[in-house]
Design a protein around this nucleic acid. Structure first.
Length: 420
DNA sequence: TCTGGGGTCCTAGGACCC
DNA sequence: TCTGGGGTCCTAGGACCC
């Protein structure tokens, strides 16, 4: 097997740059929802030492002094740009797995014996030219080794953005230079555990004793070791699997104390989730509702609670889901707390049409037409144009997004202008 | 004053069954 | 001192990913 991992460089920052060329060469960071954390950094911003996931308020002054361009996240733009990149990549091999918004695995097994580095270079150049997004290409016999190759492609200036580790000797040399915590599948906890036992590099992990790994890290850890040894254990999933859960949750700009505020928030989440569900052609039979206070405010009383409500029928009708969600919320709401975060999870998802029917169910064609109409209107005129009455526009919890760029590619009135 | 959001898979333990 | 064996299902929690 030959797998290539194509990863967009600093994806969100690169998306911002495509339509704002003046950001080229300047440090750029993109913030999470609510402008809370730094979640993407250009190379220049990384060089300034702003860590990934850092709270924005702690670094605001540093960023400002260094002349860093700051952007709120603009998922409409990133999602559309991602789609463009994936479409281009799909032209290089019939078997691709879109792994995340900015990563894609390509099956290059058919190119065995050919100059893979040259092909990788072509993928890179074409993607950049057709979408404006720079990517790195890592090639190896397994997904885990392709990940490592990709890391080398990004970090090693001589690689010119492409690294082929299908040669075992090259793979070994690369592994001896990569920290065990940088291996795909090894997070903070396991890194600590492994380093405590003298396993510091990817190569050390590859050479670790199999039985010991199986016992300490389960089948997942064992798979990682086998993949480092060149035995594929993680298949390429070319057909996207149906989602098992759909989640919508938000941290509030300001803490909320009254029931009405939470009620409005939950209702908004249900509308979003219902839209997602219908887009995916799925139905849900259970909904989980949760609320949290602010864990960072240790001086205040903490409360966090969740409840799962049976919707009694598999549905993607926002109204029916909303009724269940509010029943759940009433059950877990306690007055006297400062709520900072809430959300819903839709569970037990199935393809609509495949779901079991209950005895009392009838085809709710009217409801389906209503949902279709709402989706069409909101799709055309903006989310939230049509809503249930529970959702008041005046709600105070709306996200802080002080630095969002225009949705250049998905809103007619936000298209980039070319001034002659 | 200000700390994101959306996912997956695995495991252990308890309840329950015959 | 002794207290079966084998199984399923569910849930909570832990680990990881981007």
């Amino acid at each position: 097997m030959i797998i290539a991992l194509v990863d967009c460089n600093n994806f969100y920052c690169s998306c911002e740059r495509v339509f704002q060329p003046r950001l080229e060469g300047r440090p750029v960071v993109v913030l999470s929802n609510n402008d809370g954390c730094v979640i993407a950094r250009s190379n220049e911003a990384k060089a300034l030492g702003v860590p990934m996931g850092a709270p924005y308020f702690k670094h605001r002054d540093t960023l400002q002094k260094a002349g860093v361009a700051v952007r709120s996240s603009n998922y409409a733009l990133y999602g559309d740009m991602s789609h463009r990149v994936m479409t281009v990549l799909g032209g290089f091999t019939p078997n691709v797995e879109v792994y995340s918004i900015d990563e894609c695995f390509l099956d290059l097994s058919g190119f065995m014996g050919q100059d893979l580095t040259a092909y990788g270079q072509m993928i890179r150049d074409t993607t950049k030219q057709w979408t404006g997004i720079p990517v790195s290409v890592g090639i190896g016999p397994t997904k885990t080794l392709a990940k490592i190759a990709n890391r080398v492609a990004k970090k090693d200036p001589d690689a010119n953005g492409v690294c082929d580790l299908t040669d075992p000797a090259l793979a070994e040399a690369a592994m001896s230079k990569i920290g065990v915590g940088d291996v795909w599948g090894i997070g903070r906890r396991w890194r600590k555990m492994l380093e405590g036992r003298g396993i510091h590099t990817a190569k050390d992990l590859r050479d670790a004793q199999e039985g010991w790994v199986r016992q300490k890290m389960g089948v997942v850890g064992h798979r990682t070791v086998m993949e480092l040894r060149g035995t594929p254990c993680v298949d390429l999933e070319t057909i996207p699997q149906d989602k098992q859960t759909v989640c919508v949750s938000r941290t509030f700009g300001k803490p909320m104390t009254d029931y009405e505020g939470l009620h409005a928030a939950i209702a908004t989440f249900v509308m979003k989730a219902g839209e997602k569900l219908r887009k995916l052609d799925l139905v849900a039979t259970n909904i989980n509702v949760f609320v949290h206070t602010d864990p960072f405010r240790e001086d205040r009383a903490q409360y966090s609670k969740s409840v799962t409500v049976d919707l009694l029928t598999a549905t993607n009708h926002s109204g029916k889901i909303l009724a269940g969600a509010l029943r759940g919320l009433r059950g877990i709401y306690r007055s006297g707390y400062h709520y900072k975060r809430a959300g819903i999870l839709l569970l037990e998802l199935e393809r609509s049409g495949h779901a079991p029917r209950t005895l009392f169910e009838h085809d709710d064609q009217k409801g389906q037409r209503l949902m279709a109409a709402i989706d069409a209107i909101n799709g055309r005129y903006g989310h939230g144009v049509v809503n249930y009455g529970q959702i008041r526009r005046s709600s105070t919890w709306y996200m802080t997004q002080e630095h969002r760029s225009p949705r250049f590619t998905t809103q007619w009135d936000e298209l980039p202008l070319v001034v002659p």
